[in-house]
Amino acid sequence: MAASAQQIRRHVLQTMAGGAAVMSLPIGGWWYWANKERSRVAEANRTKIRLPNTQDTYDYLIAEKCQPGDVLLFDRRCEHCASGPWAALACLASKLFLTGSESSFDHAGLIVPGYVKSKADLYEATNLLLLEATPQGIVARPLKDRLEQSFSKTIVLLQLNCPGERRNEESDPDGAQRASVERTRKHVERELRLFRDQWVALGSGDGQKKSYYPWIHSTISLGGALLYGMGLQDYSSGPVSPSAYLVLMGLIKASAAQSIDDKENRSIKPEDLMRNYQLLNKDAVRLRPGWRFLSPITIKEGPRL
């Protein structure tokens, strides 16, 4: 007797359910391992003995090299993505379609001023946060913690140099120029504080209103990378890379970058931040006259065991 349509549907559904269950086992095992690795590194950093005033610590590096407006680029290990399979898939798509032969940076973050909870925070050089678009939302986390707990293969610092500034140079500008640089830096810090609070509230919720961005971040990232890979990014209303787009919006807010065309802004990729627009005229960030990124500084390189 021929099987009824209902029996056929039931058999198909049972087969699909069995296949999904089999596939979920290795995925679940990987996810458990990724979270355990994250917890292990967090605990190791929490209990690590720290020697003050040593030049091999992230405290020293941050105090000496980092300022609000600087950018960090990450070459991530997608297998260590503890936010889930969908986030790991979005990471793989970003690596496949948004990186080229020049670099493999697939994520970006913007250094912003830290929260001021006491008078001491005003004078603490390491009181800096890294603002990022992530599967947890748009978050601002302590810069030192973010660097110590990262599993990325490589992390590169792009120092933002304002007009007249002489970062990493022994000679100082004259009095008038120094005053101009200080005014510009205060403006950058003020605007980035406002930008930080606005986007954290928008992307992670402000305690009163829940944000749905964490639920759609990986989908936006995956869709943006796929559309860019197919050359269809101009037909999308979303960014190619949410993390790079957030960094660019911050630079525009700080008056360091120009906003000429929204379509061009949405097409920004992490590695574009390393390119000089005046030389390439495309696939690069348009900084305002006098602003520039200094030569990249490698903060971390090599495998993490």
Rank of each mutant, 00 (worst) to 15 (best):
A63V: 07
A42C: 04
R10Y: 07
M230S: 11
S104N: 07
P214K: 08
P173I: 14
G231N: 06
L279M: 09
L279V: 12
G18M: 10
K282I: 05
S218Q: 04
G231E: 03
Q233E: 14
C78A: 14
A63H: 00
L25Y: 08
L194S: 13
Y228D: 13
A225E: 04
G84P: 09
G84L: 10
S180A: 15
A254G: 06
R193M: 12
I220L: 15
S180H: 02
K36D: 10
S259W: 06
L287V: 13
E37C: 07
K144G: 04
M23L: 15
L160Q: 01
R292W: 01
P52M: 11
P242G: 05
A120I: 11
G137S: 06
D145Q: 12
S152T: 04
V188K: 00
Y235L: 13
F195P: 08
D234F: 09
T219G: 08
E148T: 06
R10I: 06
S204R: 07
Q159C: 08
Y123I: 14
T15Y: 09
A42D: 12
L294F: 10
M1E: 13
M1Q: 06
S118H: 09
Y245E: 05
R288F: 01
A90T: 06
G114L: 06
V12Y: 15
P303G: 07
P242C: 05
R76N: 10
S104Q: 10
L273A: 01
F293M: 11
E132G: 02
A256T: 09
P242H: 07
R304S: 10
A244L: 01
E102T: 11
G229C: 11
L98P: 01
G29N: 09
K263C: 01
S103Q: 03
E43W: 00
E169T: 11
D70M: 11
S83W: 14
G29Y: 11
K186R: 14
N35P: 01
L110S: 05
W86S: 02
S83N: 15
D262V: 12
W215A: 12
Q233L: 08
W291C: 03
F97P: 03
W33H: 14
Q6E: 15
G238H: 05
C78R: 01
L248F: 09
L25S: 09
K117E: 14
S4G: 12
L294R: 07
R196M: 11
L143F: 06
N168C: 08
A125F: 07
S241M: 00
D261N: 15
K209T: 15
M1L: 12
G29T: 12
G238L: 09
S104E: 08
S211M: 05
Q6R: 15
A201M: 05
F105P: 00
A133D: 11
A257D: 02
R196P: 07
K153Q: 06
I299Q: 01
G224F: 05
S150M: 04
P296A: 00
S152H: 01
V188S: 04
R76P: 00
K119M: 14
G18T: 11
E169N: 03
